[in-house]
């Protein structure tokens, strides 16, 4: 596997992990906001997007580098 192929492989595998993770965090926020009070819909959606975005930013580099290490070991 050359470097470009490996990068592609790492990217694909990483997306499969960090997308569900960040979406899960966003959904958890949405659920909490829906259950815990009478927040306006836009606040709930805005909060969901913001939490999702920050979760993506946090999880993306961590997961990508871990997957890269794992693929290299393989």
């Amino acid at each position: 596997m050359d470097k470009d192929q490996m990068e592609m492989h790492v990217s694909r595998q990483s997306v499969m992990i960090y997308m569900p993770v960040s979406m899960g965090a966003a959904l958890a926020f949405l659920l909490a906001a829906s259950l815990s009070g009478s927040y306006p819909l836009v606040a709930k959606i805005g909060g969901t997007v913001w939490v999702g975005l920050l979760s993506l930013i946090v999880s993306m580099p961590v997961i990508t580098s871990r997957v890269k290490r794992h693929v290299k070991l393989q």
Binding site: F29, A32, A33, S36, G37, A43, G47, V51, L54, S55
Partner: peptide
Amino acid sequence: ILGVHMLAVAVFIFWFFFGYQ
């Protein structure tokens, strides 16, 4: 940097669910 982003999530959640009210 990652720590700061995690902190930003925590700050947002705190003020959203508790602090603002």
